[in-house]
Amino acid sequence: MTAKVAYESVEVGTELPAQSFPVTRATLVQYAGASGDFNPIHWNEKFAREVGLPDVIAHGMFTMAEAIRVVTDWLGDPGAVVEYGVRFTKPVIVPNDDDGALIEVSAKVAALLDDKQVRVDLTAMSEGKKVLGMSRAVVRLG
């Protein structure tokens, strides 16, 4: 479990390479199958509207999975993630068209900890809204 980023090479404020992740209805169907979460709010527009949502929304756990990719791509080894937590603040709304929605994720080192660990704070946005709150990971660097 060795990250390719050296502890000595980062400081508070170091930015990780930001990434954008597209999500379409097809993405959500594929994620439903892989995760076993078949809640119809993630694929059935009629059902979503009936329960008061503006449209089909992405699985919160899909957004959580995308956001940590900014960290794991930076680390190389996803096994170097020690902790990861988020709050689901706003849904990612996924329209029924070819483009779908976009999840934009940025991250920066927020604290240097003991044992070569650092805390990384993440920001995930879609349609200009923060879709994750309190989104933090603790990772062990090399």
Partner: peptide
């Protein structure tokens, strides 16, 4: 399904290079 192409999820050799005994799962 999450579009993640990190080889440690699919290639046991890539996982071993990081000290894992087999492919690991995304967090």
């Amino acid at each position: 399904a999450v579009g993640d192409t990190n080889p440690v999820y699919v290639d046991p050799e890539a996982a071993k290079a990081f000290g894992h005994s087999d492919v690991i799962a995304p967090p």
